[in-house]
Simulated scan of single mutants.
Amino acid sequence: MTVPPPPPAHYPPAVPPPPPSGRWRPERVDALPGTEFGLVQLRVEPITSGLAIGSLIAGIGSILVSVLVLCFGVAGSTGGWGGWVSGAFTLLSVLVGGGAIALGVVARRQIRGSGRTGQVRFTGAGLGMAGIVCGCAGAGIALLSLALTLVLQLSA
């Protein structure tokens, strides 16, 4: 009868390292006392905030609708229908601009509160601020265009 070989003097690492081109990279490895195991915390890649992107899109939409307010207001001021159409588009532009402002504020709060160890880190604070600025600009341009339209329509 043969005797089995003795166990190896050292154990292989408890957690094999990830492949060099792997998607998951360990941020920290904590050994569990009394065992050969460890707890691996993976690095979480940052994600661009969807709220910030939505804020920017809504802000740009508000600016585009405010241009329609000006175009329809000037074109329809002599016909008498410019004030009505401009008013409807002004309401749309102000609502979309307000939504852009709200989304931008919520996105910036989300980004500021993210990034703790083991949590998703959001980026895009600049996108959120751009959405806030575009929303304010769109609503402001629409209101000024409506005022110009009403002045033109009342003077004609």
Rank of each mutant, 00 (worst) to 15 (best):
T2V: 10
H10M: 05
Y11L: 12
P12S: 10
P12Y: 08
A14I: 01
P17S: 01
P19R: 01
S21G: 06
G22V: 00
G22I: 00
P26Q: 02
E27C: 00
R28T: 02
R28P: 00
V29T: 07
A31F: 03
P33C: 02
G34S: 02
E36P: 01
F37K: 04
L39F: 06
V40G: 04
L42V: 08
L42T: 04
I47N: 04
T48K: 15
G50C: 10
I57T: 08
A58R: 10
G59T: 04
G61D: 11
S62T: 01
S62N: 02
V65E: 10
S66V: 00
V69Q: 05
C71E: 11
F72V: 01
F72Y: 06
G73L: 06
S77K: 03
T78S: 11
G82Q: 07
W84T: 15
V85F: 03
G87R: 01
V94R: 01
V94D: 00
L95Q: 05
G97D: 03
G98M: 07
G98P: 04
G98S: 12
I101D: 07
L103V: 01
V106S: 10
V106I: 11
Q110I: 03
I111E: 12
I111T: 11
R112F: 13
R112A: 15
G115S: 09
V120M: 14
R121V: 04
T123E: 15
G126E: 15
G128Y: 10
A130G: 05
G131A: 08
C134M: 13
G135T: 10
G135H: 07
C136F: 11
C136Q: 10
A137M: 15
A137C: 14
G138Y: 12
A139T: 11
G140C: 03
G140D: 03
G140Q: 03
A142W: 06
A142G: 05
L144A: 15
L146S: 13
L148T: 15
L148K: 08
L150F: 13
V151S: 07
A156V: 07
